[in-house]
């Protein structure tokens, strides 16, 4: 059924532990913020219906453990992603510096067909804290990095107060949709990891 329309958009949220990935996802999907989300173990996702023009899509948002040590698991679920959201905490320089690692790691593990043009969106979270007084990464600096990586769209958010969350995810959905459509061919919802890794066996991306 090649004419079947693609209705599932897969989004991966990455970033250091504690930057607010789970909170952002829950704020967007459930319009709730809780101080008591547990640290994510393994992976989970939430889904949300979104409408574009006259079409309805299911946004499937994947949330993962942020500790570096769990990165090798990414390969199990990054594949088939349509958009990757990189989150950092504006009050933590380290979380910002790690964006590059997360981006590269994602590209390696997800191995999208067109890595140059794969859509990322960057979120600088927790802008509410201390009225912005404890912030250590300036918006300018963040935007400069985004520009240097192929004009990645950038948002400053607060999962706690809901600031910019809706806007950010609309952009995320739009980008995910674009990347899906550019591929033209219909992709099944689940990606056959076994088969694709075999095909890649002989290839060299270097």
């Amino acid at each position: 059924m090649p004419s079947r329309r693609r209705t599932l958009l897969k989004v991966i949220i990455l970033g250091d532990s504690g930057v607010g990935k789970t909170s952002l996802m829950n704020q967007y999907v459930n319009k709730k913020f809780s101080n008591q989300y547990k640290a994510t173990i393994g992976a989970d996702f939430l889904t949300k219906e979104v409408q574009f023009e006259d079409r309805l899509f299911t946004l499937q948002i994947w949330d993962t453990a942020g500790q570096e040590r769990f990165q090798s698991l990414g390969v199990a679920f990054y594949r088939g992603a349509d958009c990757c959201v990189l989150v950092y905490d504006v009050n933590s320089m380290k979380s910002f510096e790690n964006l590059n690692n997360w981006r590269e790691e994602f590209l390696i593990q997800a191995s999208p067909s067109d890595p140059e043009n794969f859509p990322f969106v960057v979120l600088g979270n927790k802008v509410d804290i201390d009225g912005g007084n404890s912030r250590v990464v300036s918006e300018k600096k963040a935007r400069a990095w985004c520009a240097s990586k192929g004009n990645i769209p950038y948002f400053e958010t607060s999962a706690k107060e809901g600031t910019n969350v809706e806007e950010a995810f609309q952009c995320i959905a739009k980008n995910a949709l674009k990347s899906g459509e550019e591929e033209e061919i219909y992709l099944p919802d689940t990606i056959d990891v076994g088969a694709s890794s075999q095909q890649r066996t002989g290839g060299c991306e270097c």
Binding site: I41, A43, T190, G194
Partner: peptide, 20 residues
């Protein structure tokens, strides 16, 4: 058949002994 043999869906069970 469903390519689920990595049992990744049991990761949390195993990692922290069903704590969650």
């Amino acid at each position: 058949q469903k390519d689920c043999l990595n049992y990744f869906f049991c990761f949390r069970w195993v990692l922290i002994q069903f704590k969650r």
